[in-house]
Design a protein around this nucleic acid. Sequence first.
DNA 1: CCAAAAGTGTTGAAATTACACCCATGT
DNA 2: ACATGGGTGTAATTTCAACACTTTTGG
Lengths: 231, 231
Amino acid sequence: MWKEDKYGMHDKMYVATDCIIFGFDDGILKLLVFKRRIAPQEGALSLIGSFVKLDESVTEAANRVLEEITGLQNVFMEELKTYNAVERDDGYRCISIGQYALIRIDEYDKNLVEKHNAIWYPFDELPALVLDHDQMVKDALARLRRKARYQPIGFELLPEKFTLPQLQILYEAIYQKKMDSRNFRKKVLSFGVLIKLEEKDKSTSKKGAFYYKFNHEKYQELIAKGINFEV
Amino acid sequence: MWKEDKYGMHDKMYVATDCIIFGFDDGILKLLVFKRRIAPQEGALSLIGSFVKLDESVTEAANRVLEEITGLQNVFMEELKTYNAVERDDGYRCISIGQYALIRIDEYDKNLVEKHNAIWYPFDELPALVLDHDQMVKDALARLRRKARYQPIGFELLPEKFTLPQLQILYEAIYQKKMDSRNFRKKVLSFGVLIKLEEKDKSTSKKGAFYYKFNHEKYQELIAKGINFEV
DNA sequence: CCAAAAGTGTTGAAATTACACCCATGT
DNA sequence: ACATGGGTGTAATTTCAACACTTTTGG
């Protein structure tokens, strides 16, 4: 099943990956969690995860579960850190690699999510999760906040077309503080990675707000030059 | 040997950790690498690492090898990322967790280092390393640069007592660029986490430079308040 | 007395913050 | 006509970057 094992004298263990899946909906940051249907811990909430198989990388494993549950591919996902305490899992020695993902909540497949007993929870209503998953969520949120300072990853959480008020609300949700709309616009537009569209979103006001989209090419250029995207 | 294994149907693999060990000596950033004494790849250079045992955490494993080779405990060490490509190691499926460490090069145990066939290499003379260890070094350096921007980890590389010119040379080595000494001092001192000592270091000039030490308590206070240490 | 490194202030530019009103439109 | 959210500019403050000379002292 696998090639010769030259390290036979050493210990092997399970390697798992757990996904901290962020979404943004209705002005609120949400997390996709999973309600166990079977014992042990039936009904308990956990992150979505999987054991890593011998013939897949950790990233592949995470993408596999993510697609199973949301139907989405090519989601923004990044390694957070490993959770490797000896006693973290009472099944057997198992380390888990936390990965956080940002998904566009308008794109995921509702049926799949329901079928897998997964639920979007607003962050501030999040109940306790199994094992060390609470810590993972805490770490992921801290990472998201830090990361959003120097890379415009906020866009990963928004639909293809979004308005500046939406973007601002997202950043306010991430940082948990109000921002000044004039300064926010000035800053965001100064990066030069937003393309203003003709179309307006009239769903939240009479006047309507212009849609923008993210200019990925321009962004790559700037990253290459080492530009700082702090908001 | 271990409690009941409830996950028997899943794959197990080796988990290793590799340490990217930074030192600072003679105004130069250096890396501690290890020359293999036995086949395969006799004479090849690699990072210092170990398999993780069932009864130790990854951090414990890394501290274990680090102490074995340098004699040091309580070294600054932090997880970098995992290296988990399916084919990264030709021995067997094995993921490695990279950890980078900063050590005070005046404190390590020279005899131990020699005994283990380890060598301090200046960064810009570093030859190729085995497996994906080159990538690990590259990632670690990038992380060090980023991290040094918002946390004063530079101090971890210096002796207990250090002078401002030394500190500046270190930062210049990390960022590979000259800095203005007036601006550098102004900035560093403005953080308020340095304590000026009476004593002077006369080893590099007739006039002598005042020693400083790092105020850990004050630093913790500031971290708690969320202060930014960008240099 | 002089070479060599340590130490020190000021000024202009740039970035950041604070702040308040008009606009467009569906009802 | 009015309520609602969208959109805009300016002035004060703070931060950052550039810049050159004096001090100390061992040899």
